[in-house]
Design a protein around this nucleic acid. Structure first.
Length: 436
RNA sequence: GGAGAUGUCGCCUAGUCUGGUUUAUGGCGCCCGCCUGCUAAGCGGGUUGAGGUUUUAAGACCUCUCGAGGGUUCAAAUCCCUCCAUCUCCGCCA
C-alpha cells in the first residue's frame, strides 16, 4: 500500500514510478478522484453523525426522567419532538454512511493497483535492462581440464542424491526427492546458513507455511503474482511461496519500539510455487520446482535506514555465497522486473557451467513502507507518534539452486564433487561426495 | 470433531443480566510537574489507536475504535446473528 498523503501531495512521483515500471499510470488519477469523493462523503456522514449524537445526549437523561415520572408537560412535548427529529436524522445518517462506505472498496482497489514507489536510482527498463554491479570468481575452464562437465541432474543421479523420476511418479513434474548425500547436503547447508545468520545477530525462526489471506495480500502476492500461489480452497489458506510471508506478517498489527530496530529474523520454510506461465522452461532437473526449502532473511527497520539495511542484506548474501566458493555476479534489477512490493531489488546469480550462464540464486528487496502499511506494522519514534516502518527481505539460501551450483561447479571428471571447506564440518568432515 | 467458558484503550479490572445521565471505572506501569539533603513515599496532571477538518505553528474541533463483521433501535461495550482467537474437559492423533 502506498502512502495516500504523499500521493495526494505529489501525484507526479507515482505517475513517474508507475511508468518506470511499465505499469498503468492512469490509475493514479483514478485513485485521486475516488479518494476525493470518498472523503467528501465521509465528511457529510460525520457531520450528520455529530448532530445525531448531540440529540441522543439530550434524549438519554430525558428518558430517565420520564421513567421516573418527573417530566412536566412541556418537557414531555419537547422529548416527543426530539424523538421524531432523531428518527428522521437516523435515516439521513444511514444514507450518508452507506454512501461513504460504498466508495471505500473502490478507493482501496485503486490504491491496491498502485505499486510501490520505485527507487529512482534503480535502472529503468524491462528484465534485460538490469545493471551488473559485481562479478566474483572465475568460471572453471573444463576444456583445459580435459573433460566435459555433467549437469546437476546427471551428477545427482550418479551420487544417489537427486531422484526426479520417482518424484514424477509420486507427485508429477517439477518435484524431486533428495536422497542419501543429497538429503544430508541440504541439512548441512541449512545448518551452515543458520549458524551464519545467528552469529550475525538474526533471530532464527521456523514459521508456518500455511497462511490466511491477509498475510498473503499484505506481502503483495495476491496481485499479478496470484496465479503462482497455491490456495487450499477447503480451508481458505495459502501455501507460502517464501518465508517472507509469515515473517513479514509476524509483527502485523503491532507497534514496535524504534529503539529495538532493526529487528532481524532468519526463517527456514518450505516454499510452494505453481510455476504457472513457465511451462517448458527449466523442465530438466531441480532449477525450477513446485516445492523447495529456503532460508530467508527478513528485517524490520526505520525507513531512513532502509537503503543501508538493503546493502547489509546484500553483503550477507555475498558473504555466504563466498563460503560456498561459487562464481557469481550481482545485478541491480530493472524497474520493470520488480515485484509490486519492491522499490529496489538486487539478485545474485551463480555461474552454472553446463548452461554457460548465470542463474538467480538469491534476491533481496527493499519494500520500504509498502508491506508495513498493508500489514499495519508501525514503529513508535522519539516524538511518540507512530509511523509505518520499512521491511526488507533477502534470500540466504534457496536449497535446490545452490545444490545445482555446488554440484556443477565443484565436480571432478570421475563424477565426485568437492565439498567447500566451510561446509565440511556440517558433513562430518568429509571433503568429497562420491558416486555410489 | 463434541461440550462449556472467556475476549474492555501497555498489563489487570468495573460496566453487559435491566440499552441512554459513560467524554468507558479504578489500579499497576510509564511520562510531566510539585514537594523533599538523596532515595522512597506523598500531591497534581497526562497516558488506545485510526481517519478527517482547520491553523504559519503549537493546537483546536469532528468521526470511528470495547476480538472481527453484520443486524435490531431515535440510541449498542450492553440485545440478536455469523466468524475468529484463547482456556478447560472429552474424542481422535505425530
Amino acid at each position: 500500500m502506498i502512502d495516500p498523503r504523499l500521493l495526494r501531495a505529489e501525484p507526479h512521483l507515482f505517475r513517474d514510478s508507475q511508468s518506470r515500471r511499465g505499469a498503468d499510470d492512469s490509475i493514479v488519477d483514478r485513485f485521486l478522484e475516488l479518494d476525493a469523493s470518498r472523503r467528501a462523503a465521509q465528511q457529510q456522514f460525520e457531520e450528520l453523525r455529530a448532530q445525531q449524537k448531540k440529540l441522543g445526549k439530550q434524549i438519554g437523561p430525558a428518558r430517565g426522567a420520564e421513567k421516573r415520572g418527573e417530566l412536566t408537560e412541556d418537557q414531555q412535548a419537547e422529548l416527543t419532538q426530539w424523538l421524531s427529529e432523531a428518527e428522521e436524522l437516523s435515516v439521513r445518517v444511514k444514507e450518508a454512511e452507506s454512501k461513504a462506505v460504498d466508495l471505500e472498496p473502490q478507493v482501496a482497489a485503486a490504491a491496491n493497483e498502485i505499486e510501490n514507489l520505485v527507487d529512482f536510482e534503480a535502472p529503468v527498463g524491462t528484465e534485460a535492462d538490469f545493471q551488473t554491479l559485481f562479478e566474483v570468481g572465475t568460471p572453471r575452464d573444463f576444456e583445459s581440464e580435459g573433460f566435459t562437465p555433467r549437469d546437476h541432474l546427471e551428477l545427482g543421479e550418479i551420487l544417489g542424491a537427486i531422484d526426479t523420476d520417482r518424484a514424477a511418479k509420486v507427485s508429477g513434474s517439477r518435484f524431486f526427492y533428495l536422497t542419501g548425500d543429497g538429503a544430508l547436503l541440504e541439512l548441512a547447508l541449512l545448518n551452515l546458513a543458520m549458524s551464519f545468520a545467528t552469529s550475525n545477530g538474526f533471530t532464527p525462526v521456523i514459521p508456518p507455511a500455511l497462511v490466511r489471506p491477509p498475510a498473503m495480500a499484505g506481502t503483495g502476492f495476491l496481485g499479478q503474482a496470484e496465479e503462482n500461489v497455491y490456495r487450499l480452497e477447503a480451508d481458505d489458506l495459502y501455501l507460502v511461496g517464501t518465508a517472507e510471508v509469515p515473517l513479514a506478517a509476524y509483527h502485523s498489527d503491532e507497534i514496535l519500539d524504534a529503539a529495538d530496530l532493526p529487528q532481524r529474523y532468519v526463517g527456514f520454510s518450505p516454499c510452494f510455487r505453481r510455476e504457472a506461465g513457465s511451462h517448458g522452461r527449466d523442465t530438466r532437473g531441480i532449477i525450477r520446482v513446485h516445492q523447495f526449502d529456503k532460508v530467508e532473511m527478513f528485517s524490520f527497520c526505520d525507513p531512513d535506514q532502509a537503503v543501508a539495511e538493503h546493502q547489509r542484506l546484500l553483503s550477507w548474501e555475498r558473504e555466504f555465497l563466498d563460503l560456498l566458493d561459487v562464481p557469481y555476479r550481482v545485478i541491480d534489477v530493472a524497474t520493470g522486473d520488480l515485484g509490486a512490493s519492491a522499490a529496489r531489488k538486487y539478485d545474485i546469480e551463480a555461474w552454472i557451467p553446463t548452461q554457460g550462464r548465470y542463474r538467480e540464486v538469491t534476491s533481496t528487496s527493499n519494500c520500504t513502507t509498502f508491506q508495513s502499511r498493508r500489514l499495519n506494522i508501525r514503529m513508535r519514534g522519539d516524538s511518540g507518534s507512530t509511523q509505518p516502518l520499512a521491511t526488507l527481505n533477502g534470500t540466504l539460501i534457496a536449497m535446490p539452486r545452490v545444490i545445482v551450483a555446488l554440484l556443477e561447479n565443484h565436480q571432478a571428471a570421475d563424477g565426485s564433487v568437492a565439498i567447500p571447506k566451510a561446509l565440511q564440518p556440517f558433513l562430518g568432515g568429509r571433503e568429497h561426495l562420491v558416486p555410489t
